[in-house]
Design a protein around this nucleic acid. Structure first.
Lengths: 319, 319
DNA sequence: CTGTTAGCGCATTCAG
DNA sequence: CTGAATGCGCTAACAG
């Protein structure tokens, strides 16, 4: 636990000089610079971030705020990406989780005001109840009416991509299953309608099913609703992970007469991969990277806050 | 951004008094206590953690150190559990990730020495190259020869449980697939041998396959090795997640003659669930909780460091 | 019981 | 170019 004083003493200079060479914040003669560096090296000096941040009146930590439940994303991957990018920029990543009865604004605000982080990355799927004023970036669709910076997965692009893929393999009656919990479900619907129109396919409201949650049970229910009516659809886009597997299972159960069905899951979770479903893959790596970069920009005031949409790619699996 | 001074001024007392009532570190008269509390409330005062930690010479942050690759565990769940428990104890959670060329000891040491965290939770599947001296708790089997505190998933218990389950359903020839990357693979083997002996089942070395990694491809290879020999086994324990799915796929491919096979995956990942495999479920919630508690104990010096083994439960799925 | 004061480790003036 | 002094926000002795 060597302090800056120890280094200064060892190098025979004052603490200010040490600070200058370490932060390169003032011109220092090459010879003393060498001496200081050597002393720091030798003592294995690590500047105390707490003291540094306190002095600088700005934290070098970014906070990631998790929703109170498990989100339908590759949290591990996203976290890793954020950490990697933040580390590269000299920042650390703090993780906080929202209790189910807690307000997002409250937690974010407190984290910021306590000086624990300089900014927040928000993973809430639902909009905030109160307006946030600190430096925050949304990883999901931010509340309407605000122009908060965000980096999001765009369901419109996803739906369009899926419809095109289906059409290329000759499918005509394409269903859509939406999850109400998915922020930006409206985007999926929008992209779906657009792609149908562009592909000159008829729109049939019976082929659109709205689900409450994104889990297996909800998928079963949605599948039953979808496959009950006649004529059956021959392809389905499911804007969810577990939801898609549920739909698949419902189809297997329903069609003893072996209807052919193509299915694309909206999020390529391990569960989806295990079930052997085709799925849309979102660039998690880039997601985390952009989130951090947006936040850093916001903190430095370099660029105005932006809204970035991520594009998925399709991974085809044989069921 | 109200400081302690603002509160003191508003309440008409000194900063020390404010500190006393907020930390309950000295007796204060009820009337002034009320005044201070009211002022703090009114100004929405949040104590600056940086200053507090600097003064107290101890951080209220715990660091979670991730391995350079994606581990075969429910990172999201574990993280959430750690955060929940830490928050409850007034601690925050910092996440750092090891670069592939970085030494674990180096990263942990630096994190600690920079004052960014008071202790570390280590998620490395492989033992450390250098000895660690800071307050650290392992979430995996720690390096041999050390008596570092740890909270781990015990493969011996898992294997025993699986063998018993197989035996109850009349299986006699039980295979075992090990992943070399899984720290504590030896424990799985140990439990397997023990359970066979206890169940008076013969041990056949041909039924044990060692795999290099824990992924689908490795599972295919392991499955082929296992199902090539005759007579075939009628049950397999796979000490992995993706690995188990690979073994399953290999079996489906190999046995056109529809051999019945029971399979239990060692880790119930979403991938495993999606594939509909029976699996062992580890108590992630408790895992995170215990890791944090062990670390806090270590920091407070309340109890000596311990090694805790987690027990899995079996979830049966119909393939 | 409460106010005054001295640092925690560091970065930044201002003199030399 | 370098050193001494000041303060970031807070807590802990020590007085009163």
């Amino acid at each position: 636990m060597a302090t800056i004083k120890d280094v200064a003493r060892a190098a025979g200079v004052s603490t200010a000089t040490v600070s200058y060479v370490l932060n390169d914040s003032a011109p220092v003669s090459p010879t003393t610079r060498e001496r200081v560096l050597a002393a720091a090296q030798q003592l294995n000096y690590q500047p105390n971030q707490l003291a540094r941040n306190l002095q600088n009146q700005r934290s070098t930590t970014l906070a990631l705020v998790l929703p109170p439940f498990e989100p339908e994303i590759d949290l591990g991957g996203l976290l890793r990406a954020c950490v990697a990018r933040a580390t590269q920029a000299g920042y650390a990543v703090l993780v906080t989780a929202l209790a189910s009865d807690q307000s997002l604004a409250e937690l974010a605000q407190r984290t910021l005001e306590r000086g624990m982080a300089a900014g927040c990355i928000l993973l809430q799927p639902h909009g905030a109840d109160q307006p946030l004023n600190g430096p925050c970036v949304w990883a999901t669709w931010p509340p309407h009416g605000t122009h908060a910076p965000a980096v999001v997965c765009d369901g419109a692009l996803a739906a369009q991509r899926a419809v095109h893929a289906f059409q290329r393999s000759g499918r005509q009656r394409i269903g859509l299953v939406l999850a109400a919990t998915t922020a930006g479900a409206a985007r999926w619907y929008l992209g779906y309608r657009r792609a149908l129109k562009a592909g000159r396919l008829p729109f049939d409201p019976e082929l659109v099913v709205q689900s409450d949650t994104d889990d297996l049970a909800a998928g079963h229910a949605a599948g039953e609703a979808l496959f009950a009516g006649a004529p059956l659809c021959d392809a389905v886009i499911v804007a969810g992970g577990a939801l898609a597997v549920g739909v698949q299972q419902a189809h297997l159960r329903a069609s003893a007469h072996a209807e052919s069905l193509q299915l694309i899951a909206g999020f390529d979770t391990p569960l989806v991969a295990g079930a052997g479903l085709s799925a849309l893959v979102w660039p998690v790596e880039r997601w985390g990277q952009l989130l951090v970069e947006q936040l850093l920009n916001l903190l430095n005031g370099h660029t105005p806050p932006q809204r970035t949409c991520l594009e998925p790619s399709l991974i085809v699996r044989s069921t």
